[in-house]
Nucleic acid binder design. Structure first.
Lengths: 145, 145
DNA sequence: GGACAATTCCCCACATTTCCCCACGCGGCT
DNA sequence: AGCCGCGTGGGGAAATGTGGGGAATTGTCC
């Protein structure tokens, strides 16, 4: 089941954020209430359920560490990655480095994004939207063919 | 399980550095809390769990020592290599030659890098990042196809 | 070959951080 | 109106990183 929807929740003083109940329910039991959280593209945080993440790891495993670009990429993706599990209240705690990276302070925008969940600082997301040259209709044309 | 995450820890006067608990836990028991530590690529130190290292040794074994380049490479990689084990507090001690090579003094950046752990001097790593021409998004496109 | 010095290894103790559990309040559903 | 689910906040206990001391080992010099 794909992740859908959005919510704006608070980030408490310990760096914890609630994951919307609807998204929690659309996770496979195989994920064991556990995510791999890492740096996303464009200033946000990605949250992959464990079962989905393991297929990404398989892709990375195919790469050759003797290639400079590969090393660079692996350093960037793995450096920010860590495993996080839901606590009894359905929250995760975001590691400090990622809090800084995404410039989260006080509140967070949680987005369902098909195979993963994204966490944005609300202001950063506004900025991102304004930067995009193409509107929804144009994008659909070029992406969906 | 792959190595993930980053941490900035201190290198004490005896050349000891703690390995983050999360990385220790993602090691196979077959590694027996032992690493092969050696010179890495791009001014850092590589730390391979024993079980992973033995597969690298198998790769090297396939190479022909009658090839000049092979001899050269083998000298470079094996010269710096040594076995280190975790002490009771989850630390390793870094051999002096490698401390000098990586220009470590006082603090170290520990990076999870999938099949190995990297140890950087924080300033060196900053420099490395700044040298890279491509950003994360561009790298991902070209590396992950 | 033996004694000394230096280094390495292992163990213990402390301070901080992280993790897990419990309690409250708001809102929607029955 | 009452109940249950959901997001929010805080406190206590265990785990984690840091520093230092003493014993065993190694290498060196006489």
């Amino acid at each position: 089941m794909a992740f859908k929807g959005q919510a704006e929740y608070s980030v408490d003083s310990k760096g914890r954020v609630a994951i919307p109940a609807k998204m929690r329910k659309s996770m496979s039991p195989a994920a064991n209430e556990t995510f791999t959280i890492t740096r996303g593209f464009e200033d946000c945080i990605f949250l992959y359920p464990m079962d989905r993440w393991s297929s990404i790891e398989e892709e990375i495993e195919e790469l050759s560490m003797y290639d400079r670009e590969v090393r660079n990429f692996v350093r960037l993706i793995m450096r920010w990655a860590s495993e996080v599990s839901l606590d009894g209240q359905g929250r995760i705690s975001i590691p400090n480095p990622l809090l800084d990276f995404a410039e989260l302070n006080g509140s967070a925008l949680i987005l369902g994004a098909f195979d993963h969940i994204e966490i944005w600082d609300p202001d950063q997301f506004d900025g991102y939207l304004n930067e995009q040259p193409d509107d929804y209709e144009t994008l659909a044309e070029s992406v969906m063919r």
